[in-house]
Design a protein around this nucleic acid. Structure first.
Lengths: 222, 222
DNA sequence: ATAATCAATACTGGATCCAAAATACGTCCT
DNA sequence: AGGACGTATTTTGGATCCAGTATTGATTAT
């Protein structure tokens, strides 16, 4: 049963773009794997033209790499790369959070609460993928309150670029529990409009993900 | 006939990408103008396929907008948009500058000095376009010293996204003189490894550009 | 005259086909 | 046997053609 929100987009390239994102985040396309256009296009039921346009978009977002006459591969991130992405996120998300707190309305808080309930429901149902998506919505709602569309978009692409690795983090029940607890604390800080504490908590939230990734990536190639 | 001296890239899409960038930065393609693929492709001597891939890249960088079934247009930035871009640049360039200062070598300083001399030579020769490019090189060299490739790339795309407006700034002789003076001061601060002062100067450097844009964009439409 | 409707046109989106480049492989020579 | 060369195959890059959608302009009814 396809969810009502997931109807097929109006153009093939947008459809393909979504499918590729899913394939990368779920690990069906592994980091480092070369992308055979012919096979993929046939598998998705489209020609190579829209596929290539979707790949160009992903290239711009850093999810795939491209080399002329060699084609595309799923971007492979080293630990240092991941740390860099998280560092940049820290810089941008601090700004977004502070600006968001300036403009935060009651409606926004209600929307955040709703998203949080969805996160918890997905966790209870054991739907890891849905939980990751709900978590993403939660943060996106917050950042959008800043009223800086480019900033929000940049942060979004940074999240995307590490999606392939995030699923690992959400695989652990302990991490999921921590995410929920931190979200609840975050909501409380937002209600109190405590910018400094909010930024601090977001930093910790991120740091936990980084340390988890550090442990998992040091581990032998499962 | 293709421009002499400028070697044509190995793929048509890369060639087109460069041409489009030039067309936008030099104002041949004005902000807000719709992009007619057929006409442009013919003008560039390629088919629409590589043109569309180049446009997808530019879309990812925020130089053009895309709407399904409506096509691409050159991105039109409001004053608020420009301010947002410059604010994000401030956040990212502070990090880049501070990290760069940690790792800056004598060779790097020499490279910066060389770039600065190129800026001044272009100014003396009255070559505004070349001066803008040399200025870009100067800052890029500095940011690259940070050893954070994604950060450097992000900053680069932010520069790109306002290229169409930057040329206005460089049109004024007064602005060009100020840029040169600020660069010299910057070099001195870098040699002294004064991070705080460097960041402060970069902020001013940027603020000047913003105020200049504010005045020019308030002015009656050209 | 104005607004709504419908046909004609222009433009984008996508599929197929062809060309060019890179890779894989087998052969030949030393 | 090992390496170099040349051919065959695979894969990407690009051009052309067709289909679907949006826009424009004309026509008609109110």
């Amino acid at each position: 049963m396809t969810s009502p929100g997931r109807r097929r987009p109006p153009t093939a390239q947008q459809f393909v773009l979504g499918e590729l994102r899913r394939a990368i985040t779920t690990g069906r396309l592994r980091p480092g794997a070369p992308i055979r256009q012919d096979a993929l296009a046939e598998e998705l039921g489209v020609s190579r033209v829209p596929l290539r346009e979707a790949l160009k978009t992903l290239q711009g977002e850093g999810l795939v790499t491209y080399q002329a006459h060699h084609g595309y591969s799923v971007e492979e991130l080293s630990l240092d790369d991941l740390r860099e992405v998280y560092r940049i996120r820290q810089l941008l998300e601090e700004e977004a959070a502070r600006q968001a707190l300036v403009r935060l309305t009651g409606d926004d808080l209600a929307a955040l609460g709703k998203a949080q309930r969805e996160v918890e429901r997905a966790d209870a149902a054991g739907d890891v993928l849905e939980m990751a998506e709900a978590n993403r919505r939660f943060h996106t709602i917050l950042f959008e309150c800043a009223g800086m569309p480019r900033l929000t978009r940049l942060i979004g692409t940074l999240w995307d670029s590490t999606d392939a690795y995030r699923s690992i983090y959400y695989g652990e029940a302990l991490n999921r529990a921590r995410v929920i607890a931190e979200h609840r604390a975050l909501l409380e800080l937002l209600r109190r409009r405590d910018a400094d504490a909010t930024v601090r908590l977001l930093d910790e939230h991120r740091a936990h993900a980084v340390t988890a990734l550090e442990q998992l990536m040091d581990a032998p190639e499962r």
